[in-house]
């Protein structure tokens, strides 16, 4: 639920957390990202960095430049300036990311977990059943049928946390317990209400439903798309997964390796929360693809 007034919570001598509500209502993320944008435009005194998430924003500040109390006042002023959430418009690029759904590599991850930790069904079949879908194929159809909103880029470098913008494509599933000890790089996972892409091959808790061959960050900045940036996505970008087969996965992998892969990212749109909400209200969210 959205709070009547945002809460301000201290984090030691150099952080303040602004919380807009206590659940994962997508409006709360729009507000957190709206405030992030407003802080940057305002160049608020003493602010070093911002770290937005589902319903909150952590702001890092330098206390030699601004006190906790004064920073709270500045943030209240900027939040006041945002107006209602419907009025928010955010810069939002659309990234088309190739995805092989129901791929063999994440299938191996699940098998490895089953053998070494605790037995479990193949994740896509399990998630499909939980969500009243016919089968894993329909899960792939539903998951690739929407733009996914980048809530935050966080946790490990370049890792996007995403929510489906089309309510007909919403998927919920519990995370692994206990977590996996390894996950293949580029794995596409769903957990809670979210989708993520593994940008390091470490532990993880999301259910694995596919894999992308493209990197989401490049510390060496080798590929042309990374010339002026280290990570591919920003919060408030959108991702559209483009289903591919194993041959195309191999083709794209080879183009990544030889440095000629051309990323497909459009950057001319702004996201209007008001227009989006109007569209959502017109849908029958019970119908699946």
């Amino acid at each position: 639920m959205k709070f009547d007034a945002p809460k301000f919570l201290p984090g030691g001598d150099r952080f303040i957390m602004v919380q807009f509500g206590d659940d994962a209502e997508i409006d709360l993320n729009f507000l957190a990202l709206g405030l992030t944008t407003a802080i940057k435009a305002d160049q608020t005194r003493g602010v070093i960095d911002t770290n937005p998430s589902y319903n909150s924003l952590v702001v890092e500040y330098e206390s030699d430049e601004i006190s906790y109390g004064d920073l709270q006042k500045e943030l209240e002023r900027l939040i006041g300036g945002l107006g209602s959430v419907e009025k928010l418009e955010l810069d939002s690029r659309l990234a088309y990311l190739p995805a092989m759904y129901l791929d063999p590599w994440t299938r191996d991850c699940v098998a490895d977990y089953s053998a070494k930790i605790t037995p479990r069904d193949w994740d896509p079949a399990y998630v499909a059943e939980l969500n009243d879908l016919e089968d894993a194929q329909q899960l792939a159809r539903v998951h690739s049928g929407t733009e996914h909103w980048v809530v935050a880029v966080c946790s490990t470098p370049g890792l996007p946390l995403m929510r489906p913008l089309d309510p007909r494509c919403a998927i919920t599933s519990p995370k692994y317990n206990p977590p996996r000890t390894w996950t293949t790089l580029g794995a596409i996972g769903v957990g809670g209400l979210s989708t993520s892409i593994y940008t390091t091959s470490g532990p993880g808790g999301y259910n694995l439903i596919g894999r992308t061959p493209v990197p989401l960050w490049d510390p060496r900045q080798r590929l042309p798309v990374f010339k002026d940036r280290v990570v591919l996505l920003n919060a408030a970008d959108r991702v559209k997964f483009v289903p591919i087969d194993k041959d195309e996965f191999g083709y794209i992998e080879a183009r990544i390796a030889d440095g000629t892969y051309e990323f497909n990212i459009t950057a001319y749109q702004r996201f209007s929360v008001g227009a989006y909400k109007k569209w959502v209200a017109s849908l029958n969210a019970d119908r699946r693809f």
Partner: peptide, 10 residues
Amino acid sequence: TIDHGYPIGA
């Protein structure tokens, strides 16, 4: 809790 940003030192 719902995923949130972590302050350093938390």
